[in-house]
Simulated assay, not measured.
Amino acid sequence: MNRPRRADAADNRERILEAARAVVATADEVRLNEIAKRAGVGQGTLYRHFPTREHLLAEVYRQDVDELVATAPRLLAEHDPVTALTRWLDRLVEYARIKHGVFAAVEAGVRKDLSAHSLGPIGDALTTLLDAGRAAGTVRPDVDARDLILLVGYLTRLEQDEWDTRARHLIRIILEGVRSRG
């Protein structure tokens, strides 16, 4: 039986996840003691929530995937399709930075499991955005989610020191290629 977490335990868990996300996005090496320190918790608290580094990083990754996927319909409700796609791809840049850090820090088997978890939902969210753009006549009819996933996959090849200058620039180039010229 899964009981709800106590408020302080839930707060600790969220602080650990936020600290882990920050470390993954900026550090060359993911160290659990650094994550615990940033989160303001002891090692024991960290390990109670996440027994291994892989458990913690997998949860950071899964949480980012879930947030990214949930963003697509919200953006479409608030913006025209191209603006929604643009903002979603901006969010994807941050997701890719976390993915790159997580994948660098976990074993090959964990990477494969995490990729399997994300590819379908991300493709579905992207298809929703592209379909809305095609219906509005602002997205090329010959572009699909797989095209964009392959192109955006190259973000993982960026070095950390060039991320801020190149990632969003590359997304803008991709967006120009996706837009309908009609």
Rank of each mutant, 00 (worst) to 15 (best):
Y47C: 04
D164W: 00
H117R: 13
L57V: 06
F50A: 11
I35G: 01
S118K: 03
P81T: 06
L46Y: 04
E94G: 15
A9D: 15
L175C: 11
T138A: 11
L92I: 01
L76F: 08
A7W: 11
P81C: 04
G123F: 04
H79S: 12
V60S: 05
L56F: 09
E54C: 01
E159C: 00
R6H: 15
E29C: 07
A135P: 02
D161V: 05
D80L: 03
A10H: 11
T127M: 00
L119I: 07
V69E: 14
A116S: 12
L92D: 06
A9N: 13
L170M: 13
S118M: 04
R13C: 02
L126I: 03
A20V: 07
R91F: 06
R157I: 03
R134K: 13
R3I: 07
A136V: 09
L89R: 03
I122G: 00
R168G: 02
R87Q: 13
V41D: 02
E54K: 02
A125N: 03
G40Q: 13
E78A: 15
R62A: 07
P121S: 12
T71G: 01
I122C: 00
Q43R: 15
V139H: 09
E34T: 10
L56K: 03
L89D: 05
R140L: 11
L57E: 07
A135Y: 08
L129H: 07
V139E: 06
A136M: 03
L46H: 06
T45P: 14
D28K: 08
D11N: 08
L150S: 06
T71Q: 09
Y95I: 00
E162F: 10
D113N: 02
R91Q: 13
G44Q: 10
A9Q: 15
G42P: 08
Y154V: 00
P81D: 07
V41T: 00
V65I: 14
W163H: 03
T138Q: 07
I171Y: 08
D90G: 15
R140N: 10
L92Q: 11
P4I: 09
E176I: 02
H49G: 14
G109Y: 08
R157Y: 14
G40T: 09
G42C: 06
E54G: 02
A108H: 05
I98W: 02
F103Q: 10
V23S: 00
A7R: 15
V178G: 11
I149T: 08
L151N: 01
R3S: 12
M1Q: 09
T26G: 14
V93P: 09
A108K: 07
R181N: 07
H169M: 14
T83V: 12
G153E: 13
V82L: 15
I35W: 04
D64F: 05
V41S: 01
D131S: 15
V106Q: 02
A70M: 01
A105P: 00
R111N: 05
R179E: 12
L148H: 09
A72R: 03
L32R: 09
I122N: 02
H55W: 10
G153I: 13
R97L: 14
L76T: 04
L89M: 10
Y47L: 14
